[in-house]
């Protein structure tokens, strides 16, 4: 299930342009992250995929099929959607929220609820929560229910609009790891929107950095973007300019470990350097990229949060 944007433009009646000539291929079974500041059109682009927003010009294709020819309600039922603040129905229990789409598509209630219990397990929620109302859950639990609901119809495509934007950093970290695990298990074609560059690099196979008006600043893997920022905007956005990504070794670790500090002098993490030599080329060449960061700059995330 690949998704393709072809010269997509969105102008509102009042004359504001949300997206200007955007083209992109989202490959199947991988995660593409749209990242940018507010007003960059990332959410608009996401919502065009399931026709919550129709483009003024251009096409969006799912497996070569133009979505403008698909009836919106039917289209939305086969695309999972997870949003910030969960968007759960406050008057339905957790289990009925998860079973929403299967019930809409005519699955008998008993079966839909039975399947939904399995989904609670899958997203790491206790089945005892099944009959609670969303208002009785914590923010992190609500987001897990939101993810379970997005997966309930077993869609090939999963759209996620800043799903972890409103939870505290520790819970966000858990949810991100959980999403990576789910993605390894399920391999959905996922489009994820965030304004957090660390989240984008952690989750994205392909990262799209957007400027105001839906203009693409750079498309690439996290490693490509970090190693070769296309311009000053990207360098600034990923934090390279502020020295957050420029790490230098300070030989002050226990055993073989070397402490890394960023340009501002903050400790960023540790790296193994047996005999005082860094063996970094192999890890990067093997394609593991920054995902296998033994250099984990958690201090940055805490600072941003």
């Amino acid at each position: 299930m690949s998704i393709e944007f072809r010269h997509v433009r969105k102008t509102y009646p009042d004359g504001t342009t949300a997206v200007e000539d955007f083209s992109l291929v989202v490959p199947s079974h991988s995660t593409t992250v749209f990242v940018g500041s507010s007003g960059c059109g990332k959410t608009t682009l996401l919502r065009m995929i399931n026709r919550m927003v129709d483009p003024s010009d251009g096409q969006i294709l799912i497996d070569e099929e133009d979505v403008s020819r698909v009836e919106p309600v039917a289209l939305r039922r086969r695309i999972g959607y997870v949003m910030q603040n969960s968007g759960l129905l406050p008057h339905r229990t957790v289990i009925d929220n998860v079973a929403t789409v299967p019930i809409l598509t005519g699955t008998p209630k008993a079966k839909a609820r039975q399947d939904a219990l399995g989904l609670l397990d899958r997203v790491g929620l206790d089945r005892a929560l099944a009959n609670r109302y969303p208002g009785q859950l914590s923010g992190g639990q609500q987001q897990r229910v939101g993810v379970a609901r997005g997966l309930a119809a077993d869609p090939n495509i999963l759209l996620m609009d800043e799903p972890f934007g409103a939870v505290d950093p520790i819970v966000r970290d858990e949810l991100q790891q959980e999403l990576l695990r789910l993605q390894r298990e399920l391999g959905k074609t996922t489009v994820f929107v965030t304004h957090d560059i660390d989240e984008a690099f952690l989750l994205g196979t392909q990262v799209v950095i957007l400027k105001r008006g839906g203009v693409v600043a750079q498309i690439g893997t996290p490693a490509e973007i970090l190693a070769n920022p296309a311009d000053d905007f990207v360098a600034d956005f990923v934090g390279a300019k502020r020295g957050k990504r420029r790490l230098t070794a300070e030989e002050r670790g226990a055993g073989d470990d070397v402490l890394l500090v960023d340009a501002a002098g903050y400790p960023a993490g540790l790296i193994a350097a047996p005999g005082g030599r860094l063996e970094l080329a192999d890890a990067l060449a093997a394609g593991a990229g920054p995902k296998s960061r033994s250099v984990s700059n958690k201090t940055d995330q805490a600072g941003d949060a």
Partner: peptide, 15 residues
């Protein structure tokens, strides 16, 4: 009625 909840319901495929 919360606009987020309405929007989210539309996105799930409520007619």
């Amino acid at each position: 009625v919360d606009a987020d909840v309405r929007g989210s319901a539309r996105a799930q495929g409520f007619s």
